[in-house]
Design a protein around this nucleic acid. Structure first.
Length: 182
DNA sequence: TAACTAGCTTCTTATATAACAATGCATG
DNA sequence: CATGCATTGTTATATAAGAAGCTAGTTA
């Protein structure tokens, strides 16, 4: 079973923000230090996803645990702006999920050296001295999988859960084929 | 020299290794 | 009380994506 651990989304409010002013209006929940980074960080409350707001009106949300939470945070962010009377054309906001980081687990531990050959050396990267996981870039799915010797897997880069789920199912099938052959 | 492009910064999150720092506890 | 070893903790490594802005390098 695939579990989303981090969902990233972005939107555009088609309104320019004076971040200095906006961060003052939002209080301690907002953090803005243009010397360090051009975006303003906003957290609706502790342990909630981080919203990074830009001068141009674009923003990103990171750290959500589901697509639903992503939309919920976005809705509450727009409500907060209107409550604080911060001008923003929230009506024509285009919001989209950009990346889902998921975890999954294979039934067995894996020999990563053998798996790199089995999946194809041109689609895999495995340098245990650099990083303990095998990096697998499937041809048919828009995501990258990190496979570990314990059997744990991280699927990242997919914008929808179906792609991540199918990519993992495909990996399971390929491994099954490989173990059947040898 | 001006314009453009590419790469880096920040942040989030799981995963697992090594290398290191810092602390805890026991033995001489 | 000091030294040694063990454990815990932090950092780095790598992956993806969005964003703005800076720098470095290339090209016309």
């Amino acid at each position: 079973m695939i579990q989303i651990v981090n969902a990233v989304g972005s939107g555009s409010l088609a309104t320019e923000f004076d971040l200095e002013q906006v961060s003052r209006a939002l209080g301690p929940a907002a953090e803005y230090d243009p010397e360090k980074y051009p975006g303003m960080y906003l957290r609706l409350s502790d342990d909630e996803p981080l919203i990074t707001v830009y001068r141009t009106g674009k923003y990103i949300i990171t750290g959500a645990e589901s697509e639903a939470e992503l939309h919920s945070v976005r809705d509450r962010f727009l409500t907060l702006l209107s409550d604080e009377q911060i001008p923003a054309s929230t009506t024509d906001d285009d919001f989209a999920v950009q990346n889902l980081v998921c975890t999954a687990e294979l039934d067995d531990g894996q020999n990563l050296n053998a798996l790199a050959i089995g999946l194809g050396l041109e689609r895999t990267e495995y340098e245990p001295e650099q990083f303990p996981g095998l990096i697998y870039r499937p041809v048919d799915y828009p995501c990258v999988l990190l496979i570990f010797a314990t059997g744990k897997v991280v699927i990242t880069g997919a914008a929808d859960l179906e792609d991540a789920t199918e990519a993992f199912a495909d990996l399971e099938n390929r491994i099954e084929q490989l173990t059947g052959e040898t």
